[in-house]
Design a protein around this nucleic acid. Sequence first.
DNA 1: CTGTTAGCGCGTTCAG
DNA 2: CTGAACGCGCTAACAG
Lengths: 329, 329
Amino acid sequence: MVSIKDVASHAGVAISTVSKVLNNYPNVSSETKKKVNKAIAELGFVPNAIAAALSSKKSGRIALLMNLNTQTQAIDEIGMQYMAGAIRQAKEYNLDLVTVFFSMIQDMSYEEITRYFLSQNIAGIIICGISKDDVILQQLIEAEKFKIVLVDAPIVNATTSSVWIDHKRAQYDIAKRTILQNNAKRVLYIAGKKNGYVTDERLKGMEKLVRELNLTMLIRYGNFSELEARKLTFQYGQHKDIVVCASDLMAIGAMKALTEMDIFRPVCGFDGITLMGYVGKQMNTVRQNFAHISEEAVKELHQLMEGAAGRNVIVQYELVRMQYLDIIC
Amino acid sequence: MVSIKDVASHAGVAISTVSKVLNNYPNVSSETKKKVNKAIAELGFVPNAIAAALSSKKSGRIALLMNLNTQTQAIDEIGMQYMAGAIRQAKEYNLDLVTVFFSMIQDMSYEEITRYFLSQNIAGIIICGISKDDVILQQLIEAEKFKIVLVDAPIVNATTSSVWIDHKRAQYDIAKRTILQNNAKRVLYIAGKKNGYVTDERLKGMEKLVRELNLTMLIRYGNFSELEARKLTFQYGQHKDIVVCASDLMAIGAMKALTEMDIFRPVCGFDGITLMGYVGKQMNTVRQNFAHISEEAVKELHQLMEGAAGRNVIVQYELVRMQYLDIIC
DNA sequence: CTGTTAGCGCGTTCAG
DNA sequence: CTGAACGCGCTAACAG
């Protein structure tokens, strides 16, 4: 392995000089800079990021902590999009991104997790999919020892930012549009998971809408499961005018049930996943640009690591009508 | 940050002694060991893995290089499974796994890629989803500078192992079973992607079967796309007795086409993805345990890094009948 | 069995 | 503008 030392002797300069041109220090004559760059090119020198981190004491390593529901869904399109976006943006900032799954740390105590991240020289963490029940992670956030960006939870403190869309308004918007289009009065709302941040926000949006439009609403929790949404629709769909679901997957379940019951009810979903196409029908939904959200998360983490204080970052969403063609073409 | 030095002075021993108990060296009296461990606990000391790697010159860092087709599929169940398995096993071996996507390195030259891995102190790489057209990666493999495990390609050299199921036999088995069950003679085979390793192996299996059972076979490439398989089935399905597909996704496309054409033809797939359940019908398929495969890949990489030579590792598969219930329940 | 010494590859003063 | 010297946190000989 060719090191900075080799470059130095090959260029006939001191090690520190090489280091300076490497890190774009101002006070290096353009002539020696040229010499050094030539030597670097000739030797194919690769600066060792690890050693640099050790020496400079700042690592530029960040972790992407993901809660993939491979159990309930087998396929997590949302998670994939989050990852893709974060990776892209991390590369842009020259941050070394390590992907960590909840499953890897689920049996660890707070201390162990802290230790894990410290031992890995990780200073910043992006967390996707935290719920109110993840007490250990809550502890991690409250300790303020790491710079953290939460992608779907509204916690903010000195070292923690929150990045997400306005779920309350989005749920309000999409449901309102669908309800007005269909002149519906009696709503079946299939919410997500009890105690989920996202779930609660979306629920608030519905409650506001119900008050404003003077509707009636039956709320049931579908736990983001297609099957449960299907069952709930069988059970309650008959006597409602519309089924509003807190996720596309549940909307699919609801639509399947309605098809089997052979009745029509408008359905609206949330997320804008492509999988939806499989249902072969149309419905209104909120499209979140997950990749973009996680890009923003990395940007925000970068800010935090530069010393900025935690804050709320709100990302835009779109109301769309998804259809079969989305997946087939 | 509390370092090994603090522990040493706190315990009243030398730094090297602490290092020795940290790394389980044999010749340390149990008494000093106790002292040191006490100090470690009291100070909450976390050994810095990065520094250790620098010093010992072996990194324990491996990369998982993934080719996710988020463009064509939007959801890559297989990729997710690969990742989950690899991560689990890496943790077991105490290897630091970095996930890298093809998209991150697709514009890089061979030199740049090498530089990237070197700068990251990465010694071992697991590659999922390489094709014959990835010339840069081929170069990386041939250079034998890194220990590499390929998950779906049969390349083996001094520093490269290959881990996969026997695709030829698997394709042969599943097609044979389905054909005999249905007494079919004229086969439409929708293969994967031209020049794909997996595709070619599976094709060989079909060719063998055709010879043995004296069948006729029309081969078309569906590029692992549901839509293309659908089109091909529309075009050729009518005059065939069976549609054999090189992937479940394509099998779904084929089944949709058959449903729309309102004719029955047995279909068989490959992979055993759960998404299949969405189709609402039954079919034979080959179930690969992707998570297990990538676990084996990590094990094999570990062997390579310990000095073993590259070799072929064959993993088992299962012939199964997948059905609607798989996803609903 | 323990402590001393010399690096790993790099960044960073501080004289020159 | 340049280079010698020191240190980051740790491991690995080598003495004692």
